[in-house]
Amino acid sequence: MPRNCLVINLDRCTGCDSCIVSCKLENSLPLGIFYNRVIQVGPTGQYPNIERYNLPVQCQQCTHARCVEVCPTGASYRDEKTNIVLIDASKCIGCQYCLYACPYGVRSFDKDEGVVKKCTLCQHLTAKGKEKPACVHNCPGGARFYGDLDDPNSDVSRELAKYPDECIHTLGAPEGEEPLTRYILSPKYATWKELV
């Protein structure tokens, strides 16, 4: 099964929020609902001895997705074909257990529709393998990559291959979630901070 996910190169990210707006327009998200956010980590230290980086965060496509485990209706599920975590809005009862279970805060509750929403890796664009998610396509820094971690020729694998292990990070996994999203951050720019 493929392990499709995003890889985000923080050495290239400028924190411009284009990924947020691309995503919102592509997915027609209402005001106040976000599939992704960009967190500024730092500056840490004291001026001028400081460092910082931008951390875009969206559904991490966990191998052990707690959101799927806690969903009482099967609305949060792992798609058999693509192996990615999705939400079937028709089954969602809006209980929001998944919001509590997700350690990354990347799910939003749409009050108007009464359902939970999250990043789909732009399945409507990517399913046939031709297009990239909107946030990846439009990323100003060229910092975002999409593809299968297990395919050595995928965009994500090729980008990761450029960097030594010390530059490659994942968000913390308090319950052993094993998030797929990889972040690249070179120590010469900033030290990776464990935030979760």
Partner: peptide
């Protein structure tokens, strides 16, 4: 209904910022 960056932009390579998208 949709604006996206042009991959053939010599420097942009498909990039677009929030100002363009909006």
């Amino acid at each position: 209904v949709k604006i996206e960056g042009d991959y053939d932009g010599t420097l942009t390579k498909g990039a677009l910022c929030t100002k363009a998208l909006n």
